[in-house]
């Protein structure tokens, strides 16, 4: 396999091939994976992820990660958004080790092929259902993405779904009021489940279809991910639902 270190010139730097990074589609979010995470957001070393923005661990940087793609898979959305939002730091979290390695190699190759670009996008292997508050402060994120999440069809597996009434409290916590949470799936059941829980959550408000269609990100949410492309190839349905983080109506 070629790596940038193996003495090739820049023009020969190849993107990683997905076939070397296959992994089964499921990971148990309840088990203890070997993960590395900071005890709290202030101790996070972002310099490994965004060296152009954070030259060292303790470097002062007024930019914080604002977009998080939860369960980013092969990273298609982040790669699409990176050039569109060059001033926004984007992080993908993926629990599957090999998939995370693929995205890492992909970003590394893209950075090498396009000097100065893709500096604002990075990936980490993480269980986002457990450790988001270790990375993000209250109200830090302006966009969160949940694209084609694991459907966990069986009723007894529903607690493993990435959208649930109790997990939404954590997402609301790390999101800024006004921030947008995007969900899309090709599974109607799961779509209805996500809508039901988000609708019921007092800190999220559904965004109308018209407004969603005006959002430049929506198009990429539909088409940029590998999963989205697969569904399109199979001519399957895609169900989109976007929500705005609102202030607690109870406080008003």
């Amino acid at each position: 396999m070629s790596t940038p270190e193996s003495g090739q010139s820049e023009s020969q730097i190849k993107l990683p091939q997905k076939r070397y990074y296959r992994q089964r589609a499921h990971a148990n979010p309840f088990s203890d994976h070997q993960l590395k995470y900071p005890p709290q957001p202030s101790e996070m070393d972002w310099s490994k992820h965004y060296p152009q923005f954070y030259p060292t661990k303790d470097a002062k940087c007024d930019k914080k990660v604002e977009f998080a793609d939860i369960g980013c898979g092969y990273g298609g959305l982040m790669i699409a958004l990176a050039p569109l939002y060059p001033d926004n730091l984007i992080v993908g979290m993926e629990i599957r080790l090999k998939v995370e390695e693929y995205v890492y190699e992909r970003i590394k190759a893209l950075r090498a092929q396009n000097p100065g670009q893709y500096q604002n996008v990075s990936i980490m292997r993480m269980n986002a259902m457990k450790f988001l508050p270790n990375f993000f402060e209250k109200g830090q994120l302006t966009k969160m993405f949940f694209l084609f999440p694991d459907p966990h069809f069986k009723a007894r597996k529903h607690k493993a779904r990435i959208i649930s009434n109790t997990l939404l409290a954590e997402y609301a916590y790390i999101m800024k009021v006004g921030g947008i949470l995007y969900t899309i799936t090709d599974v109607r059941d799961l779509h209805e489940w996500m809508v039901e829980h988000l609708d019921a959550h007092p800190l999220f408000q559904r965004i109308s279809d018209e407004e969603c269609n005006q959002d430049p990100v929506t198009e990429h949410v539909r088409t940029a991910t590998e999963e989205g492309k697969k569904v399109a190839r199979n001519e399957g349905d895609k169900f989109l639902a976007c929500y705005r983080r609102i202030a607690d109506p109870y406080d008003a």
Partner: peptide, 14 residues
């Protein structure tokens, strides 16, 4: 009882 609204986290234990 509005547990949907998280006020803060106390983080630092290892």
């Amino acid at each position: 009882p509005n547990g949907y609204n998280i006020e803060s986290y106390c983080l630092g234990h290892t």
